[in-house]
């Protein structure tokens, strides 16, 4: 296809709208970034949240998650999260046969957990999706993710009002870890819990770090374990994605 066809396509839309040209309209002129100042103010408030408010958000998250059959487990530190994960790993069986295997993101928080030590005690091997030439390439990530019954990730944020985890895809943090294994476990710190989508979009757009990085080429929101109602509207978990979703919140 040549670029001329694209122009023709847009021209047809313009004509349909009654314009001969852009007509002085620009993207930022028609759709001004209205929320800039209030977003910056909102982010400041989010970052200065007091302990009471943070506790309330955690409670809200737990309540919302319950209705979705998503397990939210507050733990006091990273090592406790690892202990909890290892305990569940021991209890659960693999879905597709084969030996138990866990795969985890390369992520500072997960590193702090010393998950390897806890899983070793149970005799369950753990792979980290380490990027780079010395780490895991695409083929290996694919192979290991398929062979694993548990995938461990962190997240950028968790939205309390809908129990929504927000995750970006980066080197070391492939998206398939939260998707292909039967059980998905995420670990976050309590101050990553935010109130609602309004706060989320303010942070994604105006927080300097996220503004610089952008959404990445794949950002995913996860709200509960996979589900379907396609057979007589009966709710069943684990249609294609994970059957179970655990979220460990490190309260510190």
């Amino acid at each position: 296809m040549n670029p001329g066809d694209n122009k023709e396509f847009i021209r047809k839309i313009r004509l349909a709208l009654g314009y001969r040209s852009q007509g002085g309209r620009t993207f930022s002129g028609v759709f001004p970034d209205g929320r800039a100042e209030e977003s910056v103010e909102l982010i400041r408030r989010i970052k200065n949240r007091g302990p009471d408010e943070r506790q309330w958000l955690l409670a809200r998250l737990i309540e919302e998650a319950k209705a979705l059959n998503m397990m939210v487990v507050p733990v006091k530190d990273a090592q406790s999260a690892a202990k909890q994960i290892a305990k569940v790993a021991q209890e659960k069986e693999t879905e597709w046969g084969g030996p138990k295997r866990v795969i985890a993101w390369e992520h500072p928080l997960i590193e702090r957990m010393k998950l390897n030590r806890e899983l070793q005690k149970k005799g369950i091997p753990l792979d980290f999706t380490i990027p780079g030439p010395a780490g895991m390439g695409t083929d290996m990530v694919r192979e290991r993710v398929i062979a694993s019954y548990i995938g461990v990730t962190s997240a950028e944020f968790c939205v309390a009002s809908s129990a929504t985890l927000v995750m970006k895809t980066r080197p070391g943090q492939p998206r398939s870890v939260s998707l292909v294994p039967t059980i998905h476990m995420a670990v976050i710190e309590q101050d990553q819990i935010i109130a609602d989508l309004r706060e989320l979009y303010a942070l994604l757009k105006w927080d300097p770090y996220h503004k610089e990085e952008g959404l990445t080429n794949c950002m995913t929101f996860i709200t509960g374990p996979s589900k379907t109602g396609d057979i007589e509207l009966i709710l069943i978990h684990g249609a294609h994605g994970p059957k179970e979703l655990y979220l460990y919140v490190i309260t510190g």
């Binding site: 999706t129 895991m136 895809t169 980066r170 492939p174 080429n217 794949c218 995913t220």
Partner: peptide, 13 residues
Amino acid sequence: YIGGPRTPGQQDG
């Protein structure tokens, strides 16, 4: 939100 193919260094997609 999907905005393009796998970027260098990414391990899936």
